[in-house]
Every structure is written in C-alpha cells, then in structure tokens.
Simulated scan of single mutants.
Amino acid sequence: MLIIRTKAELRAMTQDWRRAGESIGVVPTMGALHAGHLSLVDRACAENDRVIVTLFVNPKQFNNPEDLAKYPRTEDSDAEKLTPYGADILYVPDGAQMYPEGFATTVSVTGVSEGLCGGARPGHFDGVATVVTKLFLQTDADRAYFGEKDYQQLQVVTRLAEDLDLKTEIVGCPTIREEDGLAMSSRNLRLAKGPREIAPVIAQVLDDAARVISRGGQVAQALDNARAALLSAGFDTIDYLELRSDPDLKLMTRADRPGRLFLAAWLDGVRLIDNVPVAGLASVPTPEDHPLEPA
C-alpha cells in the first residue's frame, strides 16, 4: 500500500489505472480507524479493482475548535491496520492540499442536512459536502463507501452525488457494533472506563423504543421513555432523539412509513450518535385504539 500526500501523485496513479480499464473505490475517513472503517475497506476491495482510503481530519466540518483539537491522529497505526486488506493507496493530504490559499468555495446540501446533526452542529454538513466533493474529484472514484452509523451524512452525500451528476456511486454499509452493542466510533476511544460501560445503553434504549413504535405505540411517549432511560443511566444531555422518515429524513410523529430513530447524546464529554430502523405501519392506531406499551 502506497502512502500518497499530494493531488499530483494521486492523479498520476489514477490515470494509469484508468488507462488499464480498472475501477476505483474510495473510503473517505478522518483516521483513527476501527473495525467499522475496515469493513468498508473490505467491501470496497471486493467490488473494485483499485481502492483508495483517504485520511484527512477536515477542519471545515468541526464547529467546535476544541473538538477538532481532541480528534485522534493515528496515521501510523491506521496504515498498519489497513495492510491486510489490500487497499492500494492511503491518501493523506494536508490542509494546503485540500484548502490552498484563496480557497473560497463551499458545497451546501439542503433538506436532508437540516435538523439532527445539522441543527446541533451548524456548518457541519457544508464542511462534509465540500470535502467529499473534492475527494471524489481527486480520486476519480467509481464508488464511495460510507457507514450507516452516520446515516444523515450518508443521505447528504447521496443527495450531493445525485444533484451534481457526479459519476461516483454512493454505497451505504451496515453499522458495525462492539460486542456490547455500542456503535463503533473513533470518539469511543475518549470514553473513560466507567462511561464506556454505560455507553451501550444507547443501543438498548433505541432498540426498545423502535420495538414499541413498530408495534403501534405512541411515538411521543416512546421517545419520552427513552430520554428518561438515557438520563437515568448517566448520560449528561441529549442533543436530539427523533423519529425521521427514510430516506428523506422528514420529522415523523406517527410511524406511518419506514423511518429511523436518531440519537445524539453526551457522555463523559463525548458526543455519541446512533440510529436504528423503524418499520412503518400500514395503519397507525390512535391512542384510543392501542394503549401505550411500556418501553
């Protein structure tokens, strides 16, 4: 696996691959790789002749400078983890490669970017859309792989590629979880031992709420119960806990179509997110028709 740091070097390689008629997959990351990232790399290697993994901690998607400063930088261990998977290039551009002096363009996606993390982190998805557009153009990728844990991000990138007629196909891949159910995230490394033992409550609470809602329970009451369970378990605050339609991410108060429960909550100074699907009901009972099931 080559480690490449400049656009010029990268394009020289991809042009050679194109002349050979080879397909290209890309896995965009900010590093601190875990099994979730590696599952994306594994799938990309299975579906493409050549694979590029990108590593760039993108300052434009952080609205909190302290959060950016704390984000783990682990290039050496990331490269070591990638070695068995067969990726061809680890692309590690610096800030000057991505945002040279005079850079003045922002890519913005409306609709699916609004609310959820888009509401809690102003400007976040503009930063995501801008860097992803640049990475697609720099890598000349046929396919790009994103995890469903960041489901709103997946929908933003999908909308972006469709709206701008980009050739890159967006491939969503299932959330990879720890044995105790916690969705894998680079931010998990920042949890102390005690909070780390509490964190899996997220998946349990979301699963319970999704089950209640899918059986016809009232959405508002199920969400209230879930919030109470999280705070009782030791979570500090909850940024959001909402039912949204899939894939357009419209706010839902009744489970009358397929949707997802989305959560962002703070624990030990770390912001954790997760989501689970909720099956839509053909006919949603009224409260009088169907008493609330306990969460």
Rank of each mutant, 00 (worst) to 15 (best):
G115F: 00
T237P: 02
R254A: 15
G36Y: 13
D150A: 13
I238P: 04
S214Y: 10
D224T: 15
L160I: 11
V27T: 07
K7D: 13
R43P: 00
E75N: 09
S232L: 14
E162Q: 12
P200T: 10
A12Q: 14
R19W: 11
L160Y: 02
V109Q: 04
L251R: 14
T54Q: 05
L182Y: 02
A35T: 10
R260E: 07
Q221L: 13
A183Q: 02
G259M: 09
L90V: 06
F136W: 05
V51P: 02
R19F: 09
V51Y: 03
Q97T: 14
A222N: 06
A183P: 03
Q204I: 15
Y240Q: 08
I170F: 01
L223N: 06
R244I: 13
L191S: 06
A120M: 05
D274G: 07
G25R: 01
G115S: 11
S232P: 00
L292E: 15
D142H: 12
M98H: 09
D274N: 05
A161V: 08
L206D: 09
V131H: 02
I213P: 00
P100Q: 03
L243C: 08
L230Y: 09
P287I: 08
V51S: 02
D208V: 06
P200K: 06
G147F: 03
C45T: 15
Q152P: 04
R50M: 11
G31I: 07
P72H: 09
G280H: 10
R215E: 15
A264P: 00
E242L: 13
T253H: 06
A96Y: 11
Y99W: 07
G280D: 05
V128D: 01
Y99N: 07
V156P: 02
G102V: 10
A87R: 04
D289K: 09
L182P: 01
N225W: 15
E9L: 13
D236I: 12
R73M: 09
A279H: 08
D140K: 07
L267D: 08
A282G: 11
F125P: 03
V205W: 05
M98S: 04
L230D: 13
L231K: 10
D42P: 09
A279W: 01
A220N: 12
L90H: 06
H290Y: 11
Y145I: 02
Y85H: 13
A69N: 06
A222K: 08
D246V: 12
A209L: 03
S113M: 06
R254T: 15
G127F: 07
A32G: 12
L272Q: 01
R271K: 05
L166A: 00
E22Q: 15
M30N: 08
L223D: 11
Q153W: 00
H124V: 05
P200Y: 01
L68T: 03
E169H: 10
I176D: 07
D76Q: 14
D246Y: 11
L272V: 04
L223C: 04
V157A: 04
D207T: 15
A32Q: 08
V205H: 01
A265G: 03
I4D: 04
M30L: 10
A226L: 05
E75G: 08
E114C: 13
D180A: 06
F125G: 03
G216Y: 10
P93C: 07
T106D: 11
T6C: 08
L135A: 09
E47Q: 14
